[in-house]
Deep mutational scan, measured.
Amino acid sequence: MATGGRRGAAAAPLLVAVAALLLGAAGHLYPGEVCPGMDIRNNLTRLHELENCSVIEGHLQILLMFKTRPEDFRDLSFPKLIMITDYLLLFRVYGLESLKDLFPNLTVIRGSRLFFNYALVIFEMVHLKELGLYNLMNITRGSVRIEKNNELCYLATIDWSRILDSVEDNYIVLNKDDNEECGDICPGTAKGKTNCPATVINGQFVERCWTHSHCQKVCPTICKSHGCTAEGLCCHSECLGNCSQPDDPTKCVACRNFYLDGRCVETCPPPYYHFQDWRCVNFSFCQDLHHKCKNSRRQGCHQYVIHNNKCIPECPSGYTMNSSNLLCTPCLGPCPKVCHLLEGEKTIDSVTSAQELRGCTVINGSLIINIRGGNNLAAELEANLGLIEEISGYLKIRRSYALVSLSFFRKLRLIRGETLEIGNYSFYALDNQNLRQLWDWSKHNLTITQGKLFFHYNPKLCLSEIHKMEEVSGTKGRQERNDIALKTNGDQASCENELLKFSYIRTSFDKI
């Protein structure tokens, strides 16, 4: 039985969820670079991206490699990797027998973001014989899940209580170790020597080791999670996991709180800001991140802002960003909400898709409305799209047979046209069989910064309504002859009103 693990408890099935942008060198404390989270699957090609990484700022997932063999891993080693800020997950990587050479110096898994409450997941690794993470000293947050690894031993010899604050939620089941077939031998045991430290858990006094050649490092209890030197002297209180010299914040392997210019500090002093819960960055760093993602459509890219001495992905609820200094300031009234469309555009074809934009005031991208039916549609669209004030790209209304009016965009005031449909149009209306009105132009103002209007096959939309939009939106004169079809717009509506004058002759039985 794995020490510190839980057996036999019912657990939810383990679901495996399925960018080499360097964020800056980590400095003297770390020998390499800070790398983003990685999802490495199918083959070993991307694994080489770990070569210079000291910190993975995010998670590391290595999974679904069915053609790899043990010899493929023999020359692979990433000794610079010290810390993973989120979680480490391995799933069905064939041929991998140990992690001792792959990650010989991995010391800390912070667990800032977890995989279903777990910071370390080893699942269905069919050839893994031992973990071998002999320098792993601290899992700051989260638990361990090690399950269905039929060859995995050296679990009962690990004292997880020396690595985690609590072992109650560890789930370590259905491994070879369960069948008591392992016969784990710690260093020196074969020669009758006791080389590794022994600890007591559940009444068992057991030597602690990761492999037959690597003991588990056990520091004096007084050192807590700070770690200790090879001689057993406690590291500085700002260290986490390990250090090369005692009581020196510049000799830590990793930091308990924050890293700044080669030393570990309790908090980031001005003019620095907390970033990702582990390091200090200056304003320029946060500003660069903001600008890199301002026009990016890459998933996970955030326009970072500053709030409460932190550089964070977005302002919290009730705050909006001051564009001059990136500071989050309290909103006066309802907060603006910028919604970034991942692929640059979004099609609204149902109430469900409209709900995804609920509360958005600025759309960074283009909207395509293609709704053919739905219950209580006008009210639903207004509830979900009615706060949109600005669209950076274009607005396209296409084959939306259920629409009679666009009044559900009740606050839309600006279409920038930074991206144009077919390279020309910022407003595009095609084949809307029941569209009769755009907006009530006596109450609604709309500016279209650039781009043209396109109207074709809107049989109940009168040309007068379209011409009014040209005047109000500032697009009059931009359109070419064929942009607004004269014969297919309003051709099934009563669009022309003329005053009919009647004269009559009164007659009676005795007068003409």
Results as ranks from 00 to 15, higher is better:
299 Q>E: 04
325 N>L: 10
184 D>L: 08
283 F>V: 09
156 A>Y: 10
128 L>W: 00
277 D>T: 05
79 P>M: 09
264 C>L: 00
221 T>P: 03
297 R>S: 08
35 C>D: 00
227 G>L: 02
103 F>S: 00
304 Y>W: 14
336 P>I: 15
305 V>E: 02
151 E>Q: 14
184 D>T: 04
275 F>E: 02
132 G>Y: 01
218 V>H: 09
139 I>W: 00
57 E>A: 11
316 P>S: 06
86 D>Y: 03
234 C>K: 01
286 C>T: 05
238 E>R: 13
308 N>S: 09
216 Q>F: 03
176 K>G: 15
288 D>W: 13
109 I>T: 00
148 K>P: 00
129 K>S: 09
243 C>K: 00
220 P>T: 09
148 K>H: 04
264 C>T: 00
262 G>Y: 04
42 N>V: 04
248 D>F: 03
314 E>Y: 06
44 L>G: 06
104 P>Y: 01
137 M>E: 05
214 H>P: 01
143 S>I: 08
50 L>E: 01
184 D>C: 05
330 P>E: 15
265 V>G: 07
44 L>R: 12
116 F>S: 01
163 I>N: 00
197 P>T: 08
268 C>T: 00
68 T>N: 03
237 S>R: 11
242 N>Y: 10
302 H>I: 14
309 N>H: 15
299 Q>D: 05
249 P>Y: 06
257 N>R: 10
171 Y>G: 05
206 V>I: 10
31 P>C: 14
277 D>C: 10
229 T>A: 07
60 L>P: 00
78 F>G: 00
147 E>T: 06
62 I>G: 01
148 K>V: 07
181 E>R: 03
188 G>M: 06
138 N>M: 13
253 V>H: 14
283 F>Y: 06
213 S>E: 09
302 H>C: 06
105 N>E: 10
190 A>L: 09
156 A>S: 07
194 T>L: 13
269 P>W: 11
139 I>G: 00
137 M>H: 07
230 A>K: 15
245 Q>W: 02
60 L>A: 02
214 H>C: 05
88 L>P: 00
253 V>D: 15
285 F>E: 13
240 L>E: 06
184 D>P: 02
174 L>T: 15
205 F>T: 02
29 L>F: 14
47 L>P: 04
73 F>A: 14
98 S>A: 11
